[in-house]
Design a protein around this nucleic acid. Structure first.
Lengths: 183, 183
DNA sequence: ACCGGAGTGTAGCGACTGCTACAGGTGATG
DNA sequence: CATCACCTGTAGCAGTCGCTACACTCCGGT
């Protein structure tokens, strides 16, 4: 396999468990068994390395979520779909990607030019999938995009809350209440 | 006025418009018309300075929100209350504090020991206020804390989405839909 | 008038950042 | 054997970071 691809995958592991915000080349390289020198050699710059990592996690996470959606029994209502999605999003291997996504959101607050493109690249597929799903349950046409926005952002808020230490049972209960409201 | 307090207020302005994540003493001091040397002299350390700033913004923002709540016509339902809160939270002078809050959330993902205490200190008053409000509209006792959690986290998610560049009209519409669901 | 403490400017420490120049080492190809 | 592209280690650059040592001014109290 391409050395760059190999390094990207290892770097992804490190970023998922150590975060993106404080990331610096030397500790990263040490964790990957190489040197900062080689990271720059293979990726050209730190920014390109991050771009590769973000693209990879995006692709992997979307794939794992899709396969999970296939495995689950098909939802019979929007509320039930939200419950299924929540179960997938709170699984052990989802917290890393979600944390990375939330970090990118906040980084985009400070440097929109640098991050907001990558951010839309992550959000848009999810929004599209949500619109399709919501529309499949007979939601009135005009309400489809609104509901998709609401669901995505609500789940984001609840995930953020859960990750910063709110009792998981409480966020679970909040999602249940949300799903009940959606019907 | 105490020089330290004075510096805290000026530093607050700078942090609200430049963010907390990349904050460093020298540029901050320059913006305040002093030197990093003096910031350390007055605050002891960067951490103490940040603690002062966070405490100040918390106190100020809660006060301004409360006065806005007084000024508005009393809500007649949970949904209407959410609409009022949203109007207050999307005002021009709220985006700074909210951005700071979201930054702290993400910082708490990386260093929970350092940030989660400050975070709870910010969230708890809001949660308490939400519980009181929700309970005032005849919500069943058992559902009160759940609904308060859901409302706070949903608003957080929508605010995050709005701050990272989602069309404000779309988040407004999503809040409307949420308020409709709440009744 | 003198003294002491509060406040401030200058200069610098050691550690870290992304990144680069230079010198090799390696293995396949001519 | 020679060559040449690919890969890698060492050392170091210029910059920033939080923070400190030292010397200095200035102002109120005795």
């Amino acid at each position: 396999m391409d050395r760059r691809t190999e390094l990207t995958e290892k770097a992804l592991d490190h970023v998922l468990s150590n975060g993106l915000i404080g990331l610096s080349l030397r500790p990263l390289a040490a964790a990957l068994g190489t040197s900062d020198r080689m990271l720059i050699y293979h990726f050209g710059s730190k920014d390109e390395l991050i771009a590769d990592v973000v693209a990879l996690v995006n692709q992997r996470f979307a794939a794992s979520f899709a396969s999970m959606a296939e495995a689950a029994a098909p939802a019979r209502s929007v509320g039930e779909f939200v419950r299924h999605a929540w179960r997938a999003l709170t699984g052990a291997d989802a917290t890393g990607p979600i944390r990375l996504y939330l970090e990118m959101c906040v980084l985009a607050l400070n440097e929109p030019d640098r991050w907001s493109a990558a951010l839309r690249q992550i959000r848009d597929p999810w929004l599209g999938m949500l619109r399709d799903t919501v529309s499949g349950f007979g939601t009135p046409e005009a309400q489809v995009p609104v509901l998709a926005d609401l669901i995505l952002d609500t789940l984001d808020g609840l995930l953020l809350s859960r990750l910063v230490g709110t009792d998981p049972a409480r966020t679970d209960a909040a999602v249940d209440a949300f799903a009940d409201l959606l019907g």
